[in-house]
Design a protein around this nucleic acid. Structure first.
Lengths: 199, 199
DNA sequence: GACGCTCTATGACCAGTGTCATAAGACTGG
DNA sequence: CCAGTCTTATGACACTGGTCATAGAGCGTC
């Protein structure tokens, strides 16, 4: 699989490569040599830019994916007319449907991968928690602007993220979009109910 | 952490140990030596009982957790009076809340762990898919008996499993039950809406 | 008792890991 | 031009991974 690198800086390239490799192989499955090779950078540069070792590279990769997740939500928030909550969630799912088919169901969420095989590592676990939190905060804001009450938006964001993450895992296991589609549909129905005037 | 082994058979003990270790360390993070040690069995026995190597042990562990997941759902189905759908889902979440606090947020779902760092391994990926499928089928039946229509029960089961799995990951990352609680609450509301006569 | 089978036990091998050490290149400021 | 710093490049180390090979117990059967 070929990836398009967005930067010429070796440092950034390595962080991006780490994020990509994490998706398919997890933390323990991704070696420092793999990262260097994928980023087309020498192994020595890894040591140079990331004296904190593997933990540092992975941590920065988590920050990067946090940026990506919150990035388009920030755009949605900055748009002139508010996007309805149901559309926000729907678009989030669509993005992952594309990602899954494009990677032949190999790519998953790097944050989930980090949690599942590095819970015991406080630095990485904390980084994952922070990434989730940033995502949840951004989505909460978007859902609030999209018509949900504040406390409801927070809980709905948590539900949407959880359901999405779980559905991604199911979809990868079955190599099928069905879980993602079904979950998106029921989630939409839930949102419709929550948004209904008959609160 | 001490686990209670349910069997004296070394073979079964090793499969059980594998399932337990998978929860905290994932596939790549769990070594054959770890399994043997945890099961208090010699390394040679692993080779003897599982000539298929690590893949075989992990696969059998996945079958085991599939059994556990479908086990109590079968009991629910066999009960005289049907358990309402909302209660079924609620109880599923409660079980995981206990598991998380008991393990200090270290233990996750072995199936998720397998998918996240062994997607490329067809045998393991297939085993995970099968475990998910058995679970979904059993839960669908329980939800159907609990008051949902057949097609709705299938999609709701997918949503519930996805949301649960995702919430487990979030909870482990944050070392908090909040995601699990919030997700359970919103899921319950969704089920209430789905069950409402005003379809 | 000797055989055969199941199971236990241990040592070795090779490929892989993250990290360290060291040196060579590249490029800027004087 | 040359000194100094940033970056690249490679080799080595200590360790762990799964697997293979082989031998040793335990035990029932002919």
């Amino acid at each position: 699989m070929t990836y398009v690198m967005t930067s010429n800086s070796p440092r950034i390239r390595m962080v991006e490569s780490t994020a990509m490799l994490l998706r398919e192989h997890g933390v323990t499955g991704t070696g420092m040599r793999d990262i260097a090779e994928h980023a087309q950078a020498p192994r020595g540069s890894l040591q140079h830019y990331f004296p904190g070792g593997k933990d540092q590279v992975v941590s920065e990769a988590l920050v990067l994916v946090g940026d990506q997740a919150t990035g388009w939500l920030a755009k949605v928030l900055a748009a002139d007319d508010p996007m309805p909550a149901r559309s926000v969630v729907a678009k989030m799912f669509e993005g992952w449907q594309r990602a899954l088919t494009a990677s032949d169901y190999l790519a998953g969420c790097p944050i989930v991968a980090t949690v599942t095989d590095a819970v015991a590592n406080d630095q990485l676990r904390g980084g994952a928690a922070q990434a989730f939190d940033r995502w949840a905060v951004a989505l909460t804001a978007a859902l609030f602007r999209g018509g949900l009450s504040k406390p409801r938006a927070a809980r709905s964001a948590l539900l949407a993220i959880s359901a999405l993450e779980g559905a991604i895992v199911l979809a990868r296991a079955q190599r099928s979009l069905t879980p993602l589609n079904d979950v998106a549909r029921e989630l939409d129905e839930y949102l419709a109910g929550v948004l209904a005037p008959t609160g």
